[in-house]
Amino acid sequence: MKIGVLALQGDFDAHRKRLEELGAEVVLVKKPEQLDDIAGLVIPGGESSTFLNLLGKEGFAKLKGFVRMKPTFGTCAGAILLANEVENPKQVGLGALDITIRRNAYGRQVDSSIREGQFLHDPIEMVFIRAPKIERLGKDVEVVATEGRDPVMVRKGNTLAATFHPELSDDSRIHQYFLDLVTNGKH
């Protein structure tokens, strides 16, 4: 089972390492046609505006089709890309998750933080870097993790999005959760 990590820009290598530690075969995806060979995709942290730029029209359309069919997990910029409504500024999204997400919602880098949140009701470390916030949850969007009162990881069907960076923590539970989703299709 091959798992792709979108490698246009960002911390794709941190995801690759974590997924490989968990036994997955990882493909770094830079070209649209590579999406045909993978069972699931991780969209990493980075700059969402840069991702959009590098995807181009063809890449965006192909990815939009992919995320409707196959399990996809976006972290930070990846979560922004998966949303159907993006604020601050307004930006197109792949629309795989019916959520409104606000870019840089905590402030600038000096407001980045490491906090303790809850993942499936268990405590977990969360690294927030110039992170977005999920401001609206659409119907059928399930909250998988919270920090304080904020939903910070959500899911609908095979699509998963986190506003923090599990790839920068030593804990592998969240990546395992995604791999299980790819293997079993549900939890």
Binding site: G10, F12, G45, G46, I129
Partner: peptide, 17 residues
């Protein structure tokens, strides 16, 4: 926070850019 992980974390996000 002055955590080195947050500091290098932002640099991680800039990779490939």
């Amino acid at each position: 926070s002055t955590s080195p992980r947050l500091k290098t974390g932002l640099a991680e996000m800039l990779k490939g850019g």
